[in-house]
């Protein structure tokens, strides 16, 4: 374990954990962000769910997904531990998933205190006709809990890249580079880059 590599030019590595109720689209956000599909990476014995996407410029993001294990309650803290950022996702067509975000954010605060970036994400904006949680409600809650907020649609690829950019930009040590090279901060290769940035919720961090 020669520490020489890190000693010379350490690549900043941040752990992002995705939290939220079942079926809100956490995994879809990740798959949409990473490869647009899971196909090529599905190998049981490889590191499938810990995505390490190294940017040639700045940081490396490790995305941790709790998919399928939301109900194994005691496991969640080990996911949250050591994470630099938590993405708490709810489904805008499901009020219950929105109410549960309070609990998830509490879990993060319990485990990490204030030493963590939290992003509240309202997913599935493509199902606008079934919307049960307005964007204002989401923004209000984000302000109350002092977290960032964005609405996305993993299915349509809407705001997904933006979500990761904003989380990365808020990570510690990124302030100085936030303005000058925001576009280069994460080397994302989205297959459908036609997403158009939209009005984002208030970022209170």
């Amino acid at each position: 374990m020669s520490a020489g590599g890190d000693f010379g030019n350490p690549l900043r590595k941040f752990k992002l954990v995705f939290l939220g109720e079942q079926s809100v689209g956490k995994t879809s956000l990740i798959t949409r962000f990473m490869y647009d599909s899971f196909d090529n990476t599905y190998q049981v014995n490889e590191s499938l769910f810990v995505f390490s996407k190294a940017s040639s410029l700045q940081i490396r993001l490790q995305l941790w997904d709790t998919a399928g294990q939301e109900r194994f309650r005691s496991l969640i803290p080990s996911y949250i531990r050591d994470s630099a950022a938590a993405v708490v996702v709810y489904d805008i067509t499901n009020v219950n998933s929105f109410q549960q975000t309070t609990k998830w954010i509490d879990d993060v605060r319990t485990e990490r205190g204030s030493d963590v970036i939290i992003m509240l994400v309202g997913n599935k904006t493509d199902l606008a006709d079934k919307r049960q949680v307005s964007i204002e409600e989401g923004e209000r809650k984000a302000k109350e809990l002092n977290v960032m907020f964005i609405e996305t649609s993993a299915k349509a690829g809407y705001n997904v890249k933006q979500l990761f950019r904003r989380v990365a930009a808020a990570l510690p040590g990124m302030e100085s580079t936030q303005d000058k090279s925001r576009e280069d901060m994460i080397d994302i290769k989205l297959e459908k880059p036609q997403e158009q940035p939209v009005s984002e919720g208030g970022c209170s961090c």
Partner: peptide
């Protein structure tokens, strides 16, 4: 079981 649940949920989301 969580290992398998996660595999299947990820598969379902991805394909």
């Amino acid at each position: 079981l969580g290992t398998f649940l996660r595999d299947l949920v990820m598969l379902d989301a991805a394909m």
